[in-house]
């Protein structure tokens, strides 16, 4: 990327060995719906996404399509969902990470980043091409900040 300011180097991340409980607490604190996951050497492993949690809370039958178009007839309560959550919160986030749709690199041209943001992809990991280390996160906010003319 030609301008280093187009992504933030100050970002929250999770270690693959963090628990789901720790991850959800961090998501609440940081008010985000996904967080990057790294290993001890800083290498990018994937994303821990709120959407993955939804999948865990849903019955598998609802995820295979066709036969169960809605779940309005299922009587599970909030308490049942909490029970399901308790069953997984001690497990490590490594088990639940997903490959992000896109990653960008430090040398990705700005226009390509704008295209990805235009497609609705936000919070994009910026990975060093050589080392695989996570060096930043790019979002619409970072782009707006980078677009500001100096002195504004």
């Amino acid at each position: 990327m030609s301008s280093p300011a187009i992504y933030t180097q100050t970002f929250s991340s999770l270690m693959g060995t963090d628990t789901v409980a720790e991850a959800t607490r961090r998501m609440l604190d940081d008010r985000v719906s996904d967080l990057p996951v790294i290993d001890a050497s800083g290498r990018f492993l994937g994303m821990f996404k709120l959407d993955r949690l939804y999948q865990i809370l849903l019955p598998k039958a609802a995820l295979i399509g066709y036969g169960v178009p809605d779940l309005a007839f299922v009587s599970d309560t909030l308490g049942d969902l909490r029970d399901k959550m308790r069953e997984i919160e001690h497990r490590v986030v490594r088990e639940f990470i997903v490959e992000p749709d896109h990653v960008v690199h430090t040398d990705t041209p700005p226009l390509e980043l704008v295209r990805l943001l235009h497609e609705g992809i936000n919070n994009i990991p910026v990975v060093d091409r050589d080392t695989g280390r996570l060096v930043g996160m790019a979002s619409g906010r970072d782009l707006l900040l980078a677009l500001r003319v100096e002195g504004d």
Partner: peptide, 14 residues
């Protein structure tokens, strides 16, 4: 089976 198997999976899950 496309209509009934997802319901079966839901029930066995519960």
């Amino acid at each position: 089976v496309l209509l009934t198997v997802p319901v079966t999976l839901l029930i066995t899950d519960e």
